[in-house]
């Protein structure tokens, strides 16, 4: 601006700036490793069509696991373009489907193998769930997960109480649900978001839009 008056205004502004706090800066990233507050709901699932799990460097195919709903410190999941704390479930990175900052509830997909009987091999009562060092999940490999797990254990992070996990399973009836593919799985996750994080209605609607080619 070439307005002469801006010099004066600028000077006044500068004088005021020393005490002018930022208006709405994002919350600081909490220290990690950080435990979650609670497992709220958990539902095992299997898929007819495996999908490529993009949330770790190896990008393995996944066709079973758990849909979980967890209660967390919202600052851990404030949406940032910079590095965010990574959600781990045991030896796996979890796929966060929603943001969860306002509600404090995160819906996540946790891939897990199936045993020979088709049962999802993940015991949430024996598996720690925590937020680890901020990173891009696509850059995290098995070795990095091992390191994060040992750091979490050293920090005293333990699996959630068995009673809490039982209650979480009961919240979804605990039965393994079969979906055709990842798209249907995410749409199921959207229904959980609708229940546990209703502030994210636009996300829910965005996930539930009809397919171009109907079934």
């Amino acid at each position: 601006m070439r307005l002469a008056q801006r010099t004066i205004l600028g000077t006044l502004a500068v004088a005021a700036i020393a005490g002018a706090a930022a208006v709405a800066a994002p919350p600081a990233v909490p220290a990690t490793p950080a435990p979650i507050d609670r497992v709220v709901a958990a539902q095992p699932f299997v898929l007819d069509d495996a999908f490529r799990f993009e949330w770790r460097e190896e990008k393995p195919d996944a066709r079973a696991g758990y849909l979980i709903v967890i209660k967390v410190n919202p600052d851990l999941v404030y949406p940032r373009q910079t590095l965010e704390p990574v959600l781990y479930v045991g030896n796996q990175v979890a796929q966060r489907v929603n943001v969860g900052y306002r509600s404090g509830h995160v819906v996540a997909i946790v891939p897990a193998p199936l045993d020979e009987n088709g049962v999802v091999q993940l015991d949430l009562a024996k598996t720690p769930i925590w937020f680890g060092t901020p990173e891009l999940p696509e850059r995290i490999n098995a070795h990095a997960i091992e390191v994060e797990l040992s750091v979490a254990r050293a920090a005293g992070i333990t699996p959630r109480p068995a009673a809490e996990v039982r209650a979480a399973l009961a919240a979804t009836a605990g039965r393994t649900t079969a979906f055709r593919d990842a798209h249907r799985l995410v749409q199921s996750a959207a229904e959980l978001i609708r229940v546990y994080s209703p502030e994210e209605q636009d996300l829910v609607e965005g996930l539930l839009v009809p397919l171009v080619t109907p079934e």
Partner: peptide, 21 residues
């Protein structure tokens, strides 16, 4: 302008002198 001014609904992350928002 802040980061989410360029979409409709992201969180307000404005960081600067309030009078300049």
């Amino acid at each position: 302008a802040d980061h989410n001014d360029f979409n409709c609904c992201g969180f307000n992350d404005f960081t600067g002198p309030a009078s300049t928002q």
